[in-house]
Amino acid sequence: MTVHTGQSTAKAAGEGARGRGRATGERPGRLRRALSTHWYAWTMVAPVVIVLGVIVGWPLGRGIYLSLTDANERNVGRTIGANHIDATYKFVGLDNYVDVLSDPVFVQRLTWTVVWTVCCVSTTFLLGLVLANMLNRQFRGRAAYRMMLILPWAVPGFVSVFAWRFLFNRDNGLLNKVLDGGGISAVPWLDDPTWAKFSVIAVNVWLGVPFMMVALLGGLQSIPGELYEAAEMDGAGPWKRFLYITVPGLRAVSSTVILLSTIWTFNMFPVIFLLTRGGPGDSTEILVTQAFRQAFVESPRDFAGSATWGVLILAVLMIFAFVYRRSLRKQGEVW
């Protein structure tokens, strides 16, 4: 599908001149050729590259650097009015990483973050799959159901999280009132470590299902109907059809949404922060909320520490994405 920009007519000499201006002296001809061939593409991606470079690249580079120092709020350079205070932090090598990795807290947080991610993504995926399959049939009211089911996606996250906090409230929440009506005594939804874990997962699943459902619904609709007809003719039952047509048909879309939703869930700051603030105690604290705590709640703000956590989060996710794509490629998916 990909067209080489080279096929399009090479551009005027003005571009070549610009290319020469930027060339570092080494093989200017090659750079000029590259520029004249690819300038369309480069122009088109330039806005993204610039914005990402400034807003993400710069802090990222700085973050990696800070994670190798002992920088905190008290020793970074700053100018307050007429007074300039020089930076006095120093390079400490990998000390921060050693500290964090040898602290049992990191393993605790990582374990819970992984559990949280796996639970959320798998539940969301399964529910999304079930609902998508249901909505993929023809029946009256389908559009209405679809609209209602997508609603959680359309409402700003912090609004719905507040709504859930109302419902989960142990003493004054509706959920416990309903349970009470059924003779079940109050459930400490957000007050007990185990229940709180359950509750945050439930809310995140609630928030995530619409995205999954819509993506999978799209995937289902792109599977040609003839395949099902042929299979039915061959006498394949519904389960077999699902297993041999639907599942492979959804392969591509599933692999993408699972990857994305894993990444998003891993770093799902607002749900945890707004629902429990990591509590009760520290039982629902994931890696991101921990890093946030280090950067903002402590005083002096520990810039080096939170950068270290940030880099580690990024590393974990990159390893995951890499392995995930490897395993997909082994199965013949090219991406």
């Binding site: 142990r170 004054n172 007050d191 007990d192 509590g279 009760p280 105690g281």
Partner: peptide, 9 residues
């Protein structure tokens, strides 16, 4: 007591 939402409760 409560472990969360203490103010409201």
């Amino acid at each position: 007591t409560n472990a969360t939402d203490g103010w409201n409760n």
